[in-house]
Design a protein around this nucleic acid. Structure first.
Lengths: 100, 100
DNA sequence: AATATATATCGGCTTTTCCCGATATACCAA
DNA sequence: TTGGTATATCGGGAAAAGCCGATATATATT
């Protein structure tokens, strides 16, 4: 993954908020139905409501974060659950400390 | 400084390269006249030649990096020397590790 | 099969970024 | 003061990002 693409993914207030919200799903998404936060994450609809942007925009933003390896997705039935990709985030940390 | 602005500053290949080049000025800018790398950094002209973009573009890019606290500038005569702002970069590291 | 719900993708309008050449400003030297 | 060099700023055209509504796709239910 290109470093530039990772930083672009982080160059947006809403996307930074999403990453932050996903640090504590139980706190930030109390309305989640069938909550299985730890295993799969939070579904798109809940994130969309919280962010207050359109469904298509949030879907796109999550795809951008996923392409940057900052979140991962799991499809369960008609829902897609997103959670933080701690490996990808740790790798970013490494990039900052060594390559930047 | 807004986190988003820091990441925007890093969302460009040339700006990332400049930050990298400034890690070892003696290596990357052997042509620098009156080299006083450790104290003041590298002048705009040298960076411009190395980057291969226009003078105005590089001046603008350095201003963007400076606004993000990633480099600092020192004016000496008709030259402006830029070097890495290690404090700002360290603070970014902290942001990634704690707030992201 | 028909309908309903969740998400992804598409087309498009608006704003921002990229990068340039031209010009302005700052400093130096004669 | 005049001219030369280094950098900053301005104006703008092209490309990308932000964000939307409409539509397509996938899955579930009846």
């Amino acid at each position: 993954m290109d470093q530039v693409e990772i930083f672009k993914a982080l160059s947006n207030k809403t996307r930074l908020q999403i990453l932050n919200w996903l640090k504590d799903p139980a706190l930030n998404f109390p309305e989640q139905p069938n909550a299985d936060f730890e295993n799969v994450g939070v579904c798109v609809g809940q994130i969309q409501i919280k962010a207050g942007l359109s469904q298509s925009t949030i879907s796109e933003y999550l795809a951008i974060l996923q392409r940057a390896d900052l979140v991962s997705a799991t499809r369960v039935g008609q829902w897609t659950y997103y959670k933080r990709n701690q490996e990808g985030i740790a790798q970013l940390s490494k990039i900052i400390n060594s390559e930047l």
